[in-house]
Design a protein around this nucleic acid. Structure first.
Lengths: 190, 190
DNA sequence: TTAATGCACTAACGTTCGTTAGTAAAAATA
DNA sequence: TATTTTTACTAACGAACGTTAGTGCATTAA
């Protein structure tokens, strides 16, 4: 089972660097240190590797969110959710990038299943924001726009965290939380 | 010259939908309605098409930023810059996606040149934020983290704007500006 | 009107792709 | 110890890839 993990990790890194389509099974095999045909003893196809990476990450995002304590204040609940999300990303920096960008190379029926999972994950955030607006804790923004803004901005983590690793995880998390929750400017906007 | 534009536009859409590597010259030719070999009467290679798309977009982003009036208040300058950026994206929804995601398939020396341009574009935002912090208009956030958060969140526009086209450009722009500048929460965070 | 250019075509090249078949050695199981 | 399973290998398959060569027609320039 060590080989399978090895292949998975190498694929994470390579799918992320070059993209799924630009990564060949021959390249992957070379990095792992085996012959291309040997990969098929562990995964039945290239797409199954992508499948494993994407759905593993989906599971992790969901679990992290579900493990959070129930909290009344939407503000705090949102912060917890954002931090949980950031936590999963920073602990799976390559895989989460694949999850975000390469999922479109999945085939049916996995593709539909994946889209469905993403949708319900986003829905959890949307409902927090809706509640926050109702309770007058949040500004009157469009919940969907807010969630998309929020989730995509978290992709920034990759650029900040991976290349030079100049930033500490907590610093990034604190800053992003602050920007999204309190904004950049102190001055009343609009 | 009409054919060349036609090819360029089809490539924008296809590179965006399937990714650069997963788009074949044969597929592209089929969409344009000509034979694969005929593409080479207009572009000397597949990569030259990607080149054209990426550098055209870079130019547009730069021009839009440079055309902005000089303004003292960093808050206003930042808002103008964000809106200019959003404007360029919404007017080139496919191309800007290619610009953001597929540039890594460029080869040297274009790749280095491209990275350099992105860097100096980001630097413009960083300097606005630094100035805002110095003038006490902005919170004490890390300028680089702020810029990356900001720019990546603008990718959200694609997901919101393209698929169903349910949102109006201005609504999206207003909401994103608001979130980034004033934050989501009204309650003091941290 | 003639020459030059632009743009499409057919045909094919060498390469790389994901994957399979068949085999042998090593590891796990009985 | 005997047997089954796992995992690696070599070799090769057909398909798809980016691209080139060579040709002819249509438009433009002289």
């Amino acid at each position: 089972m060590k080989r399978k993990l090895q292949i998975n990790l190498a694929a994470q890194s390579m799918f992320n660097d070059r993209g799924y389509s630009a990564t060949s099974m021959r390249d992957l095999a070379k990095v792992v240190g085996i012959e291309p045909a040997s990969l098929y003893n562990h995964y039945s196809s290239k797409e199954h590797i992508l499948n494993a990476i994407c759905f593993d990450m989906a599971e992790q995002f969901f679990e992290a969110l579900n493990d959070l304590p129930k909290i009344e204040s939407p503000s705090e609940e949102l912060e917890n959710s954002i931090r949980s999300h950031i936590d999963v990303i920073t602990k799976n920096i390559d895989a989460s990038r694949v999850f975000f960008l390469e999922w479109k190379h999945l085939n049916e029926p996995s593709l539909s299943e994946f889209k469905q999972m993403r949708k319900s994950y986003e829905a959890k955030f949307v409902s927090i924001i809706k509640r926050g607006i109702k309770l007058n804790e949040f500004h009157h923004i469009d919940p969907k726009v807010a969630v998309f803004t929020l989730l995509s901005s978290l992709n920034a983590i990759y650029d900040l965290y991976k290349p030079g690793r100049k930033f500490k995880t907590e610093v990034i998390a604190d800053n992003i939380c602050h920007i999204l929750l309190s904004g950049i400017s102190k001055i009343k906007n609009k």
